[in-house]
Every structure is written in C-alpha cells, then in structure tokens.
Design a protein around this nucleic acid. Structure first.
Lengths: 197, 197, 197, 197
DNA sequence: GATGAATGAGACTTCATTCAT
DNA sequence: TATGAATGAAGTCTCATTCAT
C-alpha cells in the first residue's frame, strides 16, 4: 500500500469515528482499529490528534469547494446558481454524512486552531455564496440594499440547520431536495405573497 | 450566602468557562476557581461535569423561552412577530454572549444526552417560530406552499449563523440589530426585487 | 440527652455501619445519619474515623470479657467451663451479630493500631481459654503434653470460623448451639487424657 | 518480557503490597512501583483495583487446591490425610506468607464480590477437609455422630487462627510444624471413636 | 515503515475533617 | 454543644503519545 493510501485510510477512519463520537470522545485507538492500523502508525502520518482533525478540514473542504465551483461554473443566472449551491450542499451532506457530522460539530468548537480555521479555508466555501450575491446585485437580479455578507451567512445557516436535522434523524419526512428547493425559494422570493408587496 | 446563590454562582462560572474553552477543555478546577469555591463544593450542587452542562441548558433555555414569548405576546401581526423574534434573539446573544457561545458549541455535540436534549427543550424555543408561521399562513399573510417546519429551521439557522460570526468577533462591522433587520427582511420579501416577480 | 448517651448512640451506629459495609467502605456521614446526628458532631466525641473503631473494640470487647468471666465464674470443672465459653461465644455472636461482624472483619486488618490492639485487649478474651486449659492441666483433667497457647487459638479459631459461616448466612442449617456442642465435644475428647475415656 | 510474565509480576507485587498494607490502604502506585511498571500498565492487565484482588484469589487459591490434593493423593488413611493437610497448610502459610496474609485479611471483608468468592472457589479448599472426614466416617475410623460440615470449619479455623499468630509475629516460639502436629492430634483423638483408643 | 506495549501526566471525583454560625 | 456546608488532599483511572523491536 502506498503512503498516500494509508494517509487516506486513516483520514476516512477519522471521519467515521469523529462523526460518530465527536472529537473528544473519539479515541486514537478507535481510529486505528477502524483504519486497521496500529495506534503508533497514525503518528507516522499525523502529528497528533488535533492534526488529524485539521488535515481533515483542510483536505475535505478543499474538495468540496472544487466540486461546488465546478457545478456552478456552467450557470450564468445567479438565481439558478443559488439553487444549484443549495442542492449541491444537501447532496454533499447526504453523500458524506459522516464528514458533514464532523464539520457541524467541530467547526463550532472554540479552540484556537479551529477558530482560526473557520476564518480561512471554511470561509472560502461560504464566500461562494457571497460571490453569487455580488454577481446578482451587479446585474440587478438581486436587491442591492441587502448586504452580501449577511445573506451568505443567512443562506448557509439555513441550509446548515436544515441538514443538522437530517443528520440527527435521517429518516425525517422532508426530503433534502425539497428542503433545498424551499430554502432557495424563500431566499429568492420571501415568505410573504408577492401580490401583497 | 444561600444555597441557591451558590448554585447560581457555579452555573454562572460554568457558562463562562464552557463558553471560553468548550466543555471538554474546561476543567472542574477552572469552574471552581471562577466561582471562587473549592473543587469539591461543585459536587455538592451537581452530580458531575455533564450534569452542570445539562442543568445549564435546562435552566437557561427555559428562561429564554419565557422571555421571548413575553416579547411576542403583545403583537398580532405575524410579520412583526418574526421581526421581534429576530431582534430578541440577537439581543439575547449580545446580552448573554457566554451562554450563547456554550449553546452554539455544545448543542452540536452528538453525545446521547445532548441529542435528546436538542429534541425536547431546545425544540420549544425554535417552535416559537413555526407557531408564528402557522399563524401567518392562516391569515394569509404568509404563503401557504412553504412548510413551517422548513421555515422555522431556515430562519433560526440564519440568525444562529449570523450570531456565531458576532460571537467569534464581536467587533465586526455589521451591527446585530441591522442583521436581524436584514434577515427578517430577506425572509419576508426575498432577495429578488419585487417588481421582477 | 447526656453526653455519654450520644457517645453510645454514635458507637452503636458505627457498629451497625461498619458491620454492614466494613470500615473502609463506611462513610462518616453513614454513621452520622444512622446515629441521627450531624457529621461534625461525631468529631466532638471521637478524634477521627479510626478512633471510633478503636474505641469500639476497647469498650465492647471489655464488656464481653466481663460477661464471659461472669458466666464461667460459678463453674469449677474446666471441661464444663470450656463448654460454657463456647456456648457463650456463640450466644454473643447471635445477640451482637453486627459487632461480631465488625470484629471478624477488622481484627484481621494489618494496620498498625489494629495489630497492636490484637496483641492487648483482644488477647485478654482469648486468654480466658488458656487459663481454663491451665487449670485443667493442673488438676489432670486435660492432657499436659498439649500446649495451652496452641489449644486456646485452635479452640477460638474453630468457634470463630464457625460463627463466620453463620454471620454470612444466618439461615444455615447447623444451629449455633449444636455447633458449640460439637466443637467442645471434639476438643474435649481430644484433650482429655486417653485413660480417662 | 512476555505478557504473561508481566501479569505475574504485577500479581506478585500486589500480593506483597496488599499483604503489607491491606487492600484499602494499598495504592495502585505502590503496586506499580513494587512491580517496576508505570501505574497505567497495571490497567493493561487488570480492569481495576478490585480485579487485581479477585484475580489473585482465583489464580492463587486454585494453585493451592491443586497442590494440597496432590499431597494427599498418595495416602489412604484419613487420619494421616488430615495430618498431611495440616502440615501442608502450615507449609503454605510459611512459604507464601504474603499471600496468606492477603487471604486472611481480605476473605473476611464483607463486600459483595468477596462474599460470593468465599462461597465458591475458597469453599473448594475447605471441602477437601470434609471429604476426608466423610471418608473416615465411612471406614469407621472417625466417629459418625459428628457433622463433617462442622468439623471442616473447626479444623480449618484452628489452623487459620494459628497461622495468623505466626503471620503477625513470625518469630514466635511455637514452630508451625509443631502446631500442625498438636492441632491434628487434638482433632484426631476427639473424632476417632473412643473404643479404638 | 509498522507495531502495540508501556508510559505518566493529569482529569474527575470522593470524603474525612474543619469551622463559621 | 450542635450543625452541615465547605474544603482540598489524594486516589483511581484514562488515553495521547512514545519507542524498542
């Protein structure tokens, strides 16, 4: 097995274990068992337990950004881009449930390295939204009196909270696709009927 | 000092310490020092470390619910109620920054008792939103083709994500009041200009 | 309530609690609750936890010695005295089950103060047996080629082991009286010279 | 060093420390130091402090039973078997003084697991005596009007009490061999029918 | 590189004892 | 004298990390 493979294998195991138990309740030996390596082997690939989490954030979120940018690239209409973002986000949550779980849990922690992390790589992901908003405001399909910095967080927060529900109880009645649809719809048009504007 | 006072004092210290370091990085001795009691004293008022967190949730969220319901009670228009909720939530975050920090961090954890907790007491808080939505749909000021269960989460998620930003960096440029305003505005009317509907 | 009464009450409670849980598993607060006094009150009557145990040994064994000497006093025949001792010992075990339990458990401990104790006050109790043996050897009703120091321990050990069984399971089939009888019988017809058979 | 060796080493250290201080006064760190391992290492071999004691009982008493049965096996005369048992018991006490000390102390404790233990494995050891008595009663060398269940305890109790003396003060004047001799003598000439004298 | 037994710092928690009331 | 809340020393046990094989 190549070095990169074992690195991947350990990271995959970490996603599984962190997702299930949370970072602090996860044991290095849990990850080692899941990855089918010895405890000590993990330290040949990572500096320490925190490093596994950080690496996991870095590498996996990087992939997400690449993927979602690719999905949006072909589209020109910011309204549709927003819809694509929402659907893509939900799809990611479903396909990478365990990773989503880890991100939801650990990105909220306030330990110094994580705080810093939220301000860099993770921000890139959310900034995709504000880029879309900017674009929409320039071509006047979005109102210009709303701040992109607020909208991006509101939009992401809405999707994130919705996906948390699904992660906690994946058997819920609202399909994630329908959720993405409704949330985009709400953000685009509001909940007050158009005629009453 | 009365017994109830020491209970409060320890809980206040716990909010401070948990908020600063997170549950798992907080030491009982940190809380004790903050509360200016001996380590052992904490165990006269709480069964164990987890119990402090649970009690904290139980007692503090209860208060929030009471407060926010009071704030909304006088209002009849669901649109205004939503605005009041948003403003009140932000006000709470500012006034009880440390508590907000703890809630944001720990309610995401996946340990069994917390998961269960999210499904009960905490749900009551969010359900205030869906109640408002229902009301609005009945009197036709809100569109009826949107699911209250989705809206409540989207709305709460938006506020929550916004307040996280403020908690991490309280010196940010967007005032929380302005945020509450914009988020309510987005939810009510959408980001697409009305005339283009 | 007089001072002496509270002293007694605490001691009685200690016998109960030590008997039930053993010295190390007994809590001062258990004894206090049993004695219906505050924890702190105990320290007005005893120096510390160990002191309760020591006092208990001292005072209670003292009583036993007085009682058993009284029971034997009227008798002249060493063979009958031995029988009386056995019966009396068993009676004590039954009547003061909890005290017996404490003595059985704690007199075996090897902590310094207890070791010392076994060599003094408790020895007095057992020495009643060797005194009887001596007497019997002098008037030739007991074989003189057996060492009183061995017999006293063997006899006490036999009774003690038998009573341990009863303490652990008071509902056993052998009555304690019958046991005392048999043990005395065994010892007598062994230590009585063969020619007197 | 093989895994089994370290298990042994820790157990040997535990026997030493428990024998010296008693279970409750023994510290895990004492045992670790004695065994020349780290505190944590002990928990790789045992679940907890109590488990060390239980394992110690289980493994060591098992060995004693095997040994003593072997010693008796060649003999046919129940009277001689009893003598062999007594001598062997005393020899064990001398050779395994520390283990004997632990057994004497801890088997008297009343904690649930130990009580239960006394009723199972330890009972096997004492039952060797009653088996001998039964045998002797069948071939009429022992009186049949004495209950084996009483005799076994009386005999064991006598030996046990005697060995306690030696353990507390190994420099005493009565040699253990002589004690075994006298105790057997006392018991034999009591349980052997008078007419066979 | 890989292993996993060993380490030992450090956490939580208990409870005998004190002392202000 | 009596109380019982408070103390804090000290113990058991966990687990990230190391290192000899």
């Amino acid at each position: 097995m190549k070095k990169a493979d074992k690195h991947k294998k350990i990271l995959a195991a970490a996603i599984h274990v962190f997702g299930e138990k949370g970072f602090y309740n996860a044991r290095i030996s849990d990850i080692a068992k899941e990855a089918k390596v010895a405890d000590g082997t993990i330290y040949l690939y990572f500096n320490n337990k925190h490093d596994i989490l950080l690496t996991l954030f870095e590498e996996e979120i990087g992939k997400l950004i690449v993927q979602i940018k690719g999905a949006i690239a072909e589209e020109k209409d910011p309204r549709k881009m927003l819809k694509i973002f929402a659907h893509n986000h939900m799809k990611l949550v479903i396909e990478k449930k365990e990773l989503a779980e880890v991100l939801q849990m650990e990105l909220r922690q306030s330990s110094a390295p994580i705080k810093q992390y939220r301000n860099t790589s993770f921000a890139d992901y959310i900034n995709i939204i504000s880029d879309i908003i900017h674009m929409g405001q320039e071509i006047k399909v979005f109102r210009s009196n709303l701040m992109p910095g607020v909208i991006k967080r509101a939009f992401f927060g809405a999707l994130d909270e919705m996906s948390r529900l699904w992660i906690l109880a994946p058997d819920n009645t609202y399909s994630m696709t329908e959720c993405a649809e409704q949330i985009t719809n709400i953000f685009l048009h509001g909940i007050v009927p158009a005629e009453s504007h």
